[in-house]
Write a protein that binds this DNA or RNA. Sequence first.
RNA 1: GUCCCCAUCGUCUAGUGGCCUAGGACACCUCCCUUUCACGGAGGAUACAGGAGUUCGAAUCUCCUUGGGGACGCCA
Length: 491
Amino acid sequence: MNQKNKIRVRFAPSPTGYLHVGGARTAFYNYLFAKNQGGDFILRIEDTDQARSTEESLKMVVHDLKWLGLNWDEGPDAITLKDVGAFGPYKQSQRLDLYQAVAQELLNQGLAYYCFLTDEEIEAQKKASEAAGTMAHLVSPYENWPLEKSKAELRNGKTAVVRFKTRELKKDYTFTDLVRGQVTFPSDMVGDFVLLRSDGMPVYNFCCAVDDHLMQISHVLRAEEHLSNTLRQLMIFEAMKWSTPQFGHLSVVLDEDKQKMSKRKGATSCFQFMEEGYLPEALLNFIALLGWSHPEEKEIITIDEMIKTFSTSRLNASGAVFDGVKLKWMNAQYLRALPDDQLWALVKPFLLKANLNLPFGNQQWAYQSIRTFKTHMETLSDAVGLYGLLDDSQFQIQSESSEVLSWEPTKPVLMKWKELLQAHDSETFLESDFLRIENDVKTSLNVKGKNLFQPIRVAVIGKPQGTELKILVPLMSRSSLIDRVEKVLAK
RNA sequence: GUCCCCAUCGUCUAGUGGCCUAGGACACCUCCCUUUCACGGAGGAUACAGGAGUUCGAAUCUCCUUGGGGACGCCA
């Protein structure tokens, strides 16, 4: 714990691609915990793997976090990427001198050493232990070299990594995990691990421990895959006589095959969900419930309510399958709860992007249409198909209409429908206008039921099933309807 | 191979020794509403991985087995 006992948590992604929903969940839990406790939420960028880290990825991650609304108190600014906060820099690639200093200290104390083993030598050891069926840890012949001797080698142009010395520790490390309870690791679970690469770059377990200390992180909520890394970090904390933060290891998010989610099977990045028309609130609500539950088991929960009720004690230790169907349901709930103007503002860009030809300027039409389609949408992109019904250039007689078209009463119904449309004294229709016209067709031809409304539906939307006509027709123009019925009659 | 973590309906979960003949949500099925679809409403089916133990009593505690996941990198 830091001096002021201030709650400080961090989300520490490595910028190697889009923000994964699993990462988003980790970030969100950290955010919720910080806000619940009145603490700070810090964004730290773990970009020490220079081969994979890119500025482009950093921008993507920052963009996605912003879209989700997970604002951080310290870290790279969302727009300029310039560091904000008193504990910077927040990109590990800019903190190299800090890691060097700690490594030097460990070296001086004889708790770490320069290792001159080549890749080939390491590979040979590995092969040998594999052949023996043991997977034994690496043993370095340099572990007890005097520091001066190693430095002389270095001066001669040799390259070396810095390894942490583990073989003399011989004890168990126990800590209380916020989600798993007491966890114990024997020290020989790991071998002498690398602190600094031969180019001076620090390795994850090292910079993570150093930064968590230097940034006065009080609680570390991170993915389960880091559970066994905790041992190495505990060793570093101990060697440096630093107090340790509290750790909590979150369960993994799985796909429907109970495997770790991968890009191969559907959407996994926040960006994809954004593009498909999910609301950030809905995505957040959904992923929060993948491993956490509201004390009263509420399902639809506002961010504020989640902040208010969040507790690590309600975090689940077992893996959770990401159920896209439930996400859709949840998104639909959020969509329906939105006022017409807000929903329209969200839907419109999707329609524009799909190049639909619609009366966008007509606000009354816009709100009327949004009310009509609200209960038919699960995602914003669903609107494209729905509104497409209203775009004349999209009108097509679907193959499933052929049966209806073959019915005997169909043609007379359509003729009458067209006639009454032409007789209508306005270019637009009220719901009552439509019902009256439909009824006139019914009484004048003595046709009812399926034989009546299915032909008309085909003449309006090109297929015998779909949205209710009495709400659809008022969104359409007379000329458009006449045009469509003529197309159907011509078939 | 070694070590670590996990295990309740198909899925997300509630459950911290008696309130559990296991509750909720999504999905599924039936019915109602509706001249289609959807929305909405009412019902229904479905789970404590297996085995030993502790206890008057176990989904809850212990151990074993099985299954799943992770770690064993100059990735994070």
